[in-house]
Amino acid sequence: MTAIQVNISRKLKGKDLITIGIFSAIYFVFNFIFMLVSGFHPVLWILMPGLIALFTGVPYMIMASKVQKPGAIFLMGFITGLIYFATGMFTVIILITFALACVLAEAVRYLTKYKSFAGNMVSFAVFSVGMIGSPLPVWLFKDSFFDQISEQGMSTEYLSSLNALANNTILVVMILAPAVLAIAGALIARALFKKHFEKAGIVKTWQR
């Protein structure tokens, strides 16, 4: 009698690719909602990466649990970046930070062997920090950035309230917020896993 071969292939199969596609759609929609909301006030714009991290924890962690293979996060990031880029909503800066974050998140998952909650939580925190590229030009090219947006017809009130926020303390807050809120988002996801998803057999229980 031959034992049943357990398929431990690390290559992405058809079903994995479809799962990635569906959860990327959900990730994108959540991301996009906060992208729109961030237009209302400079403070919302600066908190946007953090707010996105808080709310996308659930889809990210479900996908991470369902596709425990290399490339899943990279594809999710690539699809999100591609749609944003094709519709003209990503600047070069955010493409760079987002790509870096995806690569690092993949590396974290590789090193933590894909199966643990903690490893995926850290990878999600790294992944979430990638969104800071959206408000980052405020600090990177301070003066030329303000010239550029005032030329685009931003009101002087908006400019002055943004200028008041453009200091180093806020920069640190802006960078740390997504990491901290990503951990909160992942913990919320774990609570929902226990309450709903594991019982229903949608996701596997995390390994230690």
């Binding site: 992405l12 058809g14 690719l17 479809i18 569906i22 759609a25 994108f28 594809l75 699809i79």
Partner: peptide
């Protein structure tokens, strides 16, 4: 192909 499949699923899932 690994990009085409998830990307087309994403766009169709919206």
């Amino acid at each position: 192909q690994k990009l085409i499949i998830p990307l087309s699923v994403t766009i169709r899932y919206f």
